[in-house]
Amino acid sequence: MGQMELGNTMVDVNDEGYLTDASQWNKDVANAIAKEIGIELTDKHFEVLEYLRQKHTEGEVLTIRKVGKSGIVDIKGLYKLFPGGPLKYSSKIAGIPKPASCV
């Protein structure tokens, strides 16, 4: 837990750098997190991020499959946008919690 400056905004983050308050998010914050991961954000990325944030607000459990059915991008495309771990990276950049299981 701690505070950190990302894209000129002070945000609260956990030990792994995920925002602990999704409402502190903005596009500059997203760009700053993405840069650390090594991703350059495009409009397509932001479409995915907005979708994730909306589903998160609605209380839905997010899965790669769900994003793949969203009509924004298919699963292969999602991997191209966020290589290595599409859901964990996209969630981090979207300012929502890391996808987790119970343990």
Binding site: D15, I64, G85, K88, K98, A100, S101, C102, V103
Partner: peptide
């Protein structure tokens, strides 16, 4: 598919 077998610190 998760980031690890355990995901909670």
């Amino acid at each position: 598919p998760m980031a690890g077998v355990f995901t909670k610190p």
